[in-house]
Design a protein around this nucleic acid. Sequence first.
DNA 1: CGCAGTTTTGATTCATCTCAATTTGTGTGG
DNA 2: CCACACAAATTGAGATGAATCAAAACTGCG
Lengths: 252, 252
Amino acid sequence: MHANVKLNVIPITNQGLKVACSECNMRELCLPFELTDNDMGRLDSLIGGGRKLKRGQHLYRAGDSFESIFAVKAGFFKTDVLTEDGRDQVTGFQMAGEILGMDGIGTEAHTCNAVALEDSEVCLIPFAELELLSSKIPSLQHNLHKVMSREIVRDHGVMMLLGTMRAEERLAAFLLNLSQRFTARGYSPAEFHLRMTREEIGSYLGLKLETVSRAFSRFQDEGLISVQQKHICILDIARLKAVLAPPGGRIG
Amino acid sequence: MHANVKLNVIPITNQGLKVACSECNMRELCLPFELTDNDMGRLDSLIGGGRKLKRGQHLYRAGDSFESIFAVKAGFFKTDVLTEDGRDQVTGFQMAGEILGMDGIGTEAHTCNAVALEDSEVCLIPFAELELLSSKIPSLQHNLHKVMSREIVRDHGVMMLLGTMRAEERLAAFLLNLSQRFTARGYSPAEFHLRMTREEIGSYLGLKLETVSRAFSRFQDEGLISVQQKHICILDIARLKAVLAPPGGRIG
DNA sequence: CGCAGTTTTGATTCATCTCAATTTGTGTGG
DNA sequence: CCACACAAATTGAGATGAATCAAAACTGCG
């Protein structure tokens, strides 16, 4: 079970490629953040291999029994909540290094759906085993708490967005957030591909898809960005930020 | 420091009343849920006494360094996030048995403000010590994770509310949520006092205070509730629920 | 008892939704 | 490789729900 600790080779499992945390270029953004090599090896040993998903495939669905959390190794996901009466709210978009599935801990069952928006790969982290190991590795325990806490803080940011911002402010905040996360992963801050539809953006931002489309067009007309379907270029990041915090304050 | 473990008397600290978890009638809703008497005693021994707050007093402010989480022993709180440009979003209302402060774990500093909406009392739970103890008590560790996970799920519910619901639906959801939480604490499901202003409700629900007031009036006119300033009576809970999930679906 | 803060209510404006038509893009199979 | 069908995105016109502005009524605190 511990044979692959510190190995530099990448063993193949029946689920897919197994990549050790120590070999993963997302480790600084993920659960193993600042772990010693030895502790990282212990974490590796419980990670149950990877799992590959095709675009459109569900990683889990609301109601599925909760066993594991997932770290996105590559690709792009959305999570959404459905209600009986047909409401659908996208609660987040997740990219490499981000953790999925923590909504399931409290009830032993997932409460939302997670869907791959492009061909993707995740690490499967059995939660009971993670709790056991984190009780032995204080820094791992603390990292887990930090990840969960940051998710709470992120959610507060979304509430702020949904509760107080107008359509163009929401979209600007959304684009700036994506830009910042792509930057943290070594991609261009200014140029990227959206993996989600206008409707999914709209659901996340509490807007209709037409409103999202119009806001994109307005930004383009004003020279803030260029939009070509899903391809986005941020042309004037300063003015895009100013959409959020207009000079002189929001009232003045 | 550990002298009061398992004592049945209630020692006084300089901060306020110290009540053991085992003596607290909120224990079944709080961190000690399903802990053995012995483990509950160990949890007691790290809880740094209580703290009393007058109405309007801050429990913590955004930017305060993070040391502890807090369990509401009595009273009522709101949490809110402020942005530089003057936006203010109430992110939640907390009552007895609920945990405050978990937003601070990820950054070592609180990211929101917590304010007492009436004279209140909290238990102070030093987080570093809680992590240490929870690494020794698996059920405590799991309870902590459950509490954080439920907070994430609650936040998703608020996103759903803000992203997909109309004003009256939001207010109905809000009242039903309060009703359910009061019920869980042994209070009347139908009759209660709001501790927050219309403006705070509005901020939480992403509405202006006038809109909240109008929705209250409409509900009253239709015989769903009776409103007398902050005093609420739910007269027809079934029809109030129907505001959220109209018979025949939202579209039909 | 009076004043400040809170709440209610009304009239009007405005942002976003809705409905509808068109264009563009994508993937599939001949 | 092209054509077709389907999905996604854009754009316009009009409807609507909530915001805004404004004034009055109520409450409770000092």
